[in-house]
Amino acid sequence: MTVSDLAAPCGMILFAFTVIYAGITDLTTMKIRNGLVLVLLLGYGILAPLAGFSLPQIGWSAALSFGVLLAAFIFFAFGWIGGGDAKFAAATVLWLGIDHSPVYLVYTALLGGLFTLLLLQFRTRALPAFLNGSTWLVRLHSPTSGVPYGVAMALAALVVFPQTHWMTPLF
C-alpha cells in the first residue's frame, strides 16, 4: 500500500470531520473558526496531488474557490452572510471541484432556505424553561440573532461529497 492509496481515504475522513465540526460549531457559537478553513485548505493542498488529482483539476478547483470567495465576500459586505460562512463556502468548493460545486451551491441555497424557515418557526414558539440554561439555544432562539448558515453549507457538502472524485475512482 502506497501513500497515494491512503490519500483519498484520509481526504474523505478529514473533509467529513471538518465539515461536520464546522456545522456544529456554527450552530452552537454562530462562528466558523479560521482554523477549520485552514485545515480544509492545507488538507486539500497536501492530499489532492497525492490522491491523483491532475494539476488542471486542482487549478480549476482553486480558481472556482477564489470566485466563490469573491462572491461570498460581496454577500458578506451586504450583511447577508458571515465572514466565516464566506471562507467556509470557498474552502468547501475547493474540495468538491468544478464538476460538483454548482450542485453544492444549489443544495446550500435550498437547505439554507429550509433551515431558515424552520429557525423562524422555532423562534415564534416559547422556549421551554428547562432549555433557558443552554446559552447557545437561547442565542439561536433570539429573533435578533442571525442564521448559522454554516449548518446548511455543511449538510449540502455532505450530500454532494459522495459523488466527487474523492470517493469515486479518478480513472
Rank of each mutant, 00 (worst) to 15 (best):
S4R: 10
S4W: 11
L6I: 14
L6R: 10
A7K: 03
P9Q: 04
C10Y: 14
G11I: 02
L14E: 04
L14S: 01
F15R: 06
V19C: 07
A22P: 00
G23R: 00
D26T: 10
D26K: 01
T29H: 07
T29C: 03
K31M: 15
K31T: 15
N34W: 13
G35I: 15
G35K: 12
L36V: 07
V37L: 03
L38N: 12
L40K: 06
L41C: 12
L41K: 00
Y44I: 05
Y44Q: 09
I46A: 09
A48H: 03
A48M: 00
P49A: 05
L50K: 01
L50N: 09
A51N: 01
F53I: 10
F53M: 08
P56H: 00
P56C: 07
Q57K: 05
I58R: 00
G59T: 07
S61D: 00
L64R: 01
L64I: 05
V68E: 04
V68S: 10
L70K: 08
A72K: 05
F73P: 00
I74M: 07
F78T: 13
F78Y: 14
G82F: 00
D85W: 06
F88I: 01
A90R: 09
A90S: 13
T92S: 05
T92H: 03
V93D: 01
V93E: 06
W95L: 07
L96A: 03
L96M: 08
L96F: 08
D99M: 10
H100W: 12
P102K: 02
V103W: 15
Y104K: 12
V106T: 12
T108N: 12
T108K: 03
A109R: 05
L110T: 00
G113E: 13
T116V: 11
L119Y: 01
L120R: 10
Q121V: 13
F122D: 14
T124L: 14
A126V: 15
L127T: 09
P128N: 04
A129Q: 14
L131Y: 12
N132C: 14
G133W: 06
T135P: 13
W136R: 03
H141T: 12
H141Y: 03
Y149M: 10
G150N: 08
G150P: 07
V151Q: 04
A152E: 03
M153G: 09
A154I: 07
L155N: 09
L155Q: 08
A156L: 05
A157M: 01
L158E: 01
V160E: 11
F161A: 01
F161M: 09
P162W: 05
P162A: 02
P162S: 10
P162C: 03
Q163C: 14
T164V: 11
T164G: 01
P169H: 14
